[in-house]
């Protein structure tokens, strides 16, 4: 069983939600993540950068058939470190939620 460990980087509400969605997929397109969370490109980029700087999220790019310009699809995924930290953080949240008032 995963050991509970509260992670301040992940706990910020938007970053927790980002990790929650990335944890369910192998990779997600930046646009899918943005639309699911209902936030702006800039906000998502800012939080992704924080998570990437912590080595929790990895970013890769690929060409897009839908686009006629040179822009590429940005794929995001949780690194093994990120998955482990997210699992430990969720465990910590569950412990807090299950604790007696």
């Amino acid at each position: 069983m995963t050991e509970a460990r509260f992670d301040e980087t992940i706990h910020a509400p938007v970053r927790l939600r980002i990790c929650g969605l990335l944890n369910k997929a192998d990779r997600l397109d930046f646009a899918v993540l943005r639309d699911t969370l209902g936030i702006s490109d800039a906000t998502l980029s800012k939080h992704i950068k924080t998570l990437a700087d912590s080595h929790y999220v990895t970013i890769s790019k690929s060409s897009s058939a839908k686009r006629t310009d040179a822009r590429r699809v940005t794929w995001l995924s949780l690194s093994p470190t990120g998955r482990s930290a997210f699992a430990a953080h969720v465990r910590a949240l569950q412990d807090i939620a299950d604790s007696r008032a």
Partner: peptide, 27 residues
Amino acid sequence: MENDFERPTREAAAEALNTLHADRERL
């Protein structure tokens, strides 16, 4: 590093977990 000052209340933790569930449903 842990910081007790940042820890959420029981209600906030439950709400955060519910939000994760709602996001998965939305996706």
